[in-house]
Simulated assay, not measured.
Amino acid sequence: MAARTGAGRRMSLARQLDVVLGPRSYPIWIGQGLLADSGRWRSVIRGRHVLVVSNETVAPLYLDAVLRGLDGLHSASLVLPDGEQHKSLARCAEVLDALAALKANRDACVIALGGGVIGDLAGFAAACWMRGVDFLQIPTTLLAQVDSSVGGKTGVNLPAGKNLVGAFHQPRGVVIDTDTLATLPPREYRSGLAEVVKYGAIGDAEFFAWLQRNAAALAAREPAALGEAIARSCLHKAGVVARDEREEGERALLNFGHTFGHALETFSGYGQLLHGEAVAIGMVLAAQLSQQLGRAPSRDTQALIALLQALDLPTALPAGSDAEELLRLMYLDKKNLSGHLRLILWRGIGAAEIVPGVADAAIRPVLRAA
């Protein structure tokens, strides 16, 4: 069922949430058929110049649909290689060169069509071009839909660590077309479920219980369960971002498992371990450390492990992991202050907290045991 809007475009049924940031507030649309619904998302494009940035996996599937929606504008596209290893300054320079070739002005818009790598990279390029132009997020992976596309964190990786170069730059809107998940490979889909679990783990015990009851439906990609999980995840993220846009307090809780996870991604080599897989392992490590420090009960750690395993996500470090090297890499995390680790731990399901000054001597046994 659909309604029609001007120029014969079809308006799909969609759920709309809003990230409330005063004059920089923006909508998140969630629904089926949204890529073809240009009557909705074109409304946030303010200028004539539009660059669509995608990758070699997503572009053959969805780029033409987006370009059709830009009919009448001065648009171009840039297709980059796929993979975390390409979230780099060199690829960012390619986006900036494409904007220069387009003769993009300060009212230009960059559209990020792809997963979290494309969203972060294109968003960072938009933040840099002429000191900041608009961008629109069209995430096509579950992980990007429930996490990285919302909140304005953009950036690229360095060999020394993940996301060390970046900027806060909010999008003009987020278009979550759930139909794109039909083409998502199983491993990529499961990776996204880790971030969904995170929202229940850090601040919503009722949602965590819902995930436990609906794990089989989510694993099977049942549309009703999937739509509910995406909406609840985005609602949680939008609320946190509205209260703490620049991660000066509460927003840091969204990094539950990420200090461990980012270190593991860097150690393994970008692309060898998917982000959600690393976060799943990282959440278990954070829960185990919380338990060891007497901050959380063991039953909650076991419940987290059971849910992640029900969703076919890893819960232990890969063979060959080096505890000392992982600990060294954890010190590159952006949440650390004055050379001291600042970790996101928990008191149990639904109760994450920021814990500064965790001693290396407490972390080593957890890494070695994992």
Rank of each mutant, 00 (worst) to 15 (best):
Q85G: 10
C109D: 00
F135G: 00
M130H: 15
W129P: 01
S88E: 07
A108V: 10
L70K: 06
A144L: 05
T178N: 06
D82P: 08
D97V: 10
V133F: 02
F135Q: 01
P171R: 02
I176S: 07
A122E: 02
A65C: 12
Q170W: 00
D97K: 14
T178Q: 13
L164P: 02
C128Q: 14
H169Y: 04
N157K: 04
G69C: 06
R172N: 06
K153W: 07
K103Q: 15
V174H: 07
N163G: 09
L73R: 15
F124V: 10
H86E: 13
P139F: 04
T154L: 07
G132K: 12
A65Y: 00
S149C: 12
I138E: 03
N157P: 04
A59L: 12
G119S: 10
G155Y: 05
K87E: 11
I176A: 04
D97H: 13
R106A: 11
L61W: 05
G152T: 10
D177I: 02
I118K: 01
I118S: 03
A104P: 12
L102R: 12
S77C: 09
A59G: 11
P81R: 04
G123K: 00
A76M: 05
V150Y: 01
R131T: 03
A93C: 12
G155H: 07
M130V: 02
A104I: 08
G69F: 04
V175M: 14
P60V: 06
A65R: 13
S88D: 15
G132M: 13
S149L: 05
D177Y: 01
G83E: 05
A108W: 06
S77M: 04
G173M: 09
N105L: 08
V150C: 08
L61G: 06
G123V: 01
K162Y: 07
K153T: 06
A93M: 11
L61H: 11
D82H: 14
A144S: 14
A76F: 07
K87L: 11
L142H: 00
V146I: 12
S77F: 01
G69W: 02
V79I: 15
K103E: 14
G151Y: 01
A112W: 00
K162G: 09
G83S: 09
A90H: 10
D71S: 15
D120W: 01
H74C: 13
A160C: 07
C109Y: 01
V175H: 05
G151P: 13
S75E: 13
H86N: 14
F124N: 05
L80M: 14
L121E: 08
R68T: 09
Q145K: 08
L158Q: 11
G151D: 03
A93H: 13
V110N: 00
A65V: 12
C92Y: 02
C92F: 03
G119P: 06
G119C: 07
L61N: 09
Q170M: 08
V95T: 07
A90S: 14
G114V: 03
D82M: 05
L102W: 12
T178H: 00
